[in-house]
Design a binder for these strands. Structure first.
Lengths: 106, 106
DNA sequence: ACGTAATACATCATATCACGAAGTATTTGT
DNA sequence: ACAAATACTTCGTGATATGATGTATTACGT
């Protein structure tokens, strides 16, 4: 997928991935993979950013000798998802504009 | 609208604005305005980029003593719009993923 | 026993890009 | 005469996705 198009979807995708259940980096990538491909460096950058902006909180926990950081969505994070949904109306209007049939040219 | 979300739409919006009829900067901004707000510096940057990547061609013409640069879409530019339409299926899948109902949390 | 893949997270440098600010110049409206 | 609209240009800045690289441990096949 076009990288510019991804930009507006990545943050909200990550939030959606932890919306119903706390999750951790590696799992998030796997859950999102069917919809959008994301490298590890991208995800951890995004998670850091979302933490700094208060969209989620982090809790470290050990699992089979390995460190895991579980991410939990906040009210602000849920709000961010709602904002996204509300903006979708505008996005669809733009899509209609781009998608409208040619009248003068082939 | 969220700036990141705009990123994937701006280029293709500009191409759509000149798809049926050659147009020029100031006019493009006005035509797109109902759908997406764009500053002049943004538009002219985009037009330059689209020209360099062969999505459109430029023709300078005088109009009432003022210089005008008319932009004409190329086959590659039309192809870019088609690519965008084809990617929309993936975008909608992502939207569904984000939009799915909560099961466990309020 | 050994090597490879998978799990798990982190950091850095780079390239792309939207945008505000500021500038140049003409025409139109009041 | 002055402001607003028309029309295009350049520059600096901040945001951000990503590949490359690194560190460690566990799981699995042979």
């Amino acid at each position: 997928m076009d990288i510019q198009l991804k930009r507006g979807l990545l943050d909200v995708c990550v939030l959606a991935a932890i919306k119903d259940k706390d999750s951790y980096g590696y799992q998030i990538i796997k859950d999102i993979k069917p919809y959008i491909e994301m490298s590890e460096s991208t995800l951890y950058t995004i998670l850091k950013r979302l933490e700094l902006s208060g969209m989620l909180t982090v809790r470290t926990s050990e699992h089979g000798g390995r460190l895991r950081k579980y991410y939990h969505i906040t009210k602000a994070g849920l709000g961010r998802i709602e904002d996204f949904k509300n903006e979708w109306r505008e996005v669809m209007a733009i899509y209609q504009f781009v998608n409208k049939e040619d009248t003068k040219r082939a």
